[in-house]
Nucleic acid binder design. Structure first.
Lengths: 210, 210
DNA sequence: AATTGTGAATTGATTCACAGCT
DNA sequence: AGCTGTGAATCAATTCACAATT
């Protein structure tokens, strides 16, 4: 097992990937799977899969493999995707608007139940009414959010983060390309889309130079 | 220095972050900066900053710091953001549509010059005309793309990847939640948005359990 | 016979601490 | 005097290899 130890963030991300591979397998009607099969589906080594799972207990059967449904449920329990999390999106520009109805969110337990911005207040947006971000704390008092997604221009991002924190969210996903400061008890994840492209352009540049 | 060694992917991502911090500083009219100041702006340790930079050479001045403009240019050269890369986006759903005009892309050298899908062919979309993905190879023959972004449903993603590769792209950024297979000479980066939320829900679950 | 679960070995990344410059 | 650049030390993650189990 591994009760006390700190679990690497990449392990959690891989669990998500395993989980999706398991969904695929379930839909094909399979019931048992080996660490090697999972590994191949996801593109890692099989000891990696076993190590990752071993952080959380021993739920395979030696000589046989893992029960797919069982493993799937265990992972959902671990990553918290067996619950439904209430999400507020702040910033309904192109990207924010797209995220409101991103199918991958709802299917994994993230339900967008609030949309906030500084303009277009009152406008309907895919079943949600855009609310004034300045009312966030008030709104959250009636109906708390677990998680906030920030999709505003970078100069506004810290201010929005402060509001989300004041409104009691427990985690923030930030798409604005700035480093935010939040209290330690609030989980923060920074995602910068152009950063991903830059790793690619780095590798492309490398190759042309050679 | 460090000419031969393999550079960690996280280092490249941090270089992007440093670069953005430098932009900020330049806009304030500053001209010199220490590794500690960069580190604080980005949220890492100062030896980390120096190590990252040292992979690519020694471009600071001992006792003084780094020339901001100079360092900025060097990083742009390293990450390839001093060039303009031609990008094709495949899949103009909500997310794909948002990415077409994502401001962070163009400002860092990624110019979306092609939009492809299986439907709405011929429709104009923010200055681009949607083209048939089945014509991709033909279109790319006339006007090659450096990089392809896949934003299609997961069942179509591998097929699209094969087409992009056939059309000669050198790198692929994939938003579909599946593991793609491409030839080694093509750079591939997988981005799964719900994975980021899942790291957050994991940490939130942890806290409630305690 | 097959595959898990896990200590041990290895590889990789970060941090330390200080010599070397300006 | 101050800050970089870097080898050495530490810390973390991955991979190996095999005993344990069905």
């Amino acid at each position: 097992m591994n009760k006390g130890r700190k679990i690497p963030e990449v392990t959690i991300m891989r669990l998500s990937a395993y989980s999706r591979a398991l969904e695929q397998m379930m839909s094909k009607g399979e019931t048992v799977v080996s660490s090697l099969e999972i590994a191949e589906a996801v593109g890692v080594g099989s000891p990696q899969v076993r190590k990752d799972l071993a952080y959380f207990g021993a739920f395979g059967i030696r000589g046989l493999g893992y029960g797919i449904q069982d493993l799937y449920d265990r992972i959902a329990e671990i990553t918290g995707t067996n619950k439904v999390w209430k999400v507020a999106i702040v910033g309904l520009g192109h990207l924010g608007g797209a995220l409101v109805s991103y199918p991958g969110f709802l299917s994994r337990g993230f339900k967008v139940v609030g949309a906030f911005d500084v303009k277009d207040i009152g406008k309907r947006y895919r079943g949600l009414v855009i609310q004034d971000i300045r009312d966030f704390v008030q709104v959250a008092k009636e109906n708390p959010f677990d998680l906030g997604i920030i999709v505003v221009p970078k100069d506004a991002a810290q201010e929005v983060a402060d509001i989300l924190v004041a409104g009691g969210v427990r985690a923030i996903l930030n798409f604005a390309p700035v480093n935010l400061t939040v209290p330690v008890e609030v989980e923060l994840k920074q995602v910068d889309l152009s950063m991903f492209l830059e790793t690619l352009s780095y590798h492309m540049s490398q190759k042309t130079e050679k």
